[in-house]
Amino acid sequence: QSFTCPYCGKMGYTETSLQEHVTSEHAETSTEVICPICAALPGGDPNHVTDDFAAHLTLEHR
Rank of each mutant, 00 (worst) to 15 (best):
P42I: 12
N47Y: 06
T58C: 13
T4K: 11
T16N: 10
E20T: 06
E15Q: 10
A55S: 14
T29C: 12
R62H: 11
A55M: 10
P46F: 08
L59M: 14
P46C: 07
S24I: 13
M11P: 15
K10E: 11
F3I: 11
L57E: 06
Y13S: 05
Y13K: 04
T29A: 14
I37Y: 01
S17C: 00
H48K: 14
E15P: 11
H26A: 03
T23C: 04
C8N: 00
P46A: 06
C38I: 01
P6V: 01
T23R: 09
T4C: 07
G43D: 11
R62V: 11
F3E: 00
E25K: 10
A27E: 11
L59F: 10
S2A: 13
T14S: 10
A54M: 08
D51Y: 09
I37A: 02
D45K: 14
D52N: 14
H26E: 14
H48R: 15
A40P: 08
S30I: 07
H61F: 00
T58P: 03
V49L: 08
C8S: 00
C35M: 02
E20K: 07
P6A: 03
E20L: 07
H48T: 15
A39W: 03
C5N: 00
C5T: 00
T14C: 08
T4H: 04
G9Y: 04
N47L: 08
V49A: 12
E32W: 05
S2W: 03
E20A: 10
L18F: 09
T50N: 04
F53D: 05
F53P: 04
L59R: 14
G9P: 11
V22H: 02
E20S: 11
Y7E: 10
A55C: 10
I37K: 05
A40E: 09
G12V: 03
A55P: 03
D51N: 15
H48N: 15
H56M: 00
Q19A: 15
L59E: 14
P46I: 07
T23E: 12
C5I: 00
V22E: 03
I37G: 03
K10T: 07
P46W: 06
V22N: 07
C38M: 02
L41C: 14
D51I: 10
E15V: 07
H21F: 00
R62Y: 09
T14G: 09
S30R: 15
C5R: 00
N47K: 15
A40F: 07
E32V: 14
T23S: 09
Y7S: 05
T14A: 08
E15Y: 04
S17Y: 09
I34E: 08
T23F: 11
K10F: 03
T14R: 08
S30V: 07
S17F: 11
A55R: 14
F53C: 09
T50D: 02
D45R: 13
R62S: 15
E25Q: 07
G43T: 13
T14N: 14
A54K: 09
P6Q: 01
A54S: 10
A39Y: 06
K10D: 15
H56Y: 01
V22I: 05
A55Y: 05
A40S: 13
S30W: 05
V33A: 11
A27N: 13
C35D: 03
H26Y: 01
F3G: 00
G44A: 13
D45A: 14
I37H: 02
E15M: 13
I34C: 03
Y13R: 03
T4G: 04
S24H: 04
H26K: 10
S2P: 02
H26I: 03
D45E: 10
G12W: 02
S17H: 15
E32T: 14
P46Y: 09
V33Q: 03
T14P: 08
A40Q: 10
E60S: 06
L59T: 15
Y13H: 09
E25P: 03
E15R: 04
H21D: 00
F3Q: 01
T31Q: 13
A40T: 08
A39K: 15
E60K: 12
D45G: 14
C5G: 00
L18D: 08
F53R: 04
R62E: 13
Y7A: 13
A27V: 08
F53Q: 07
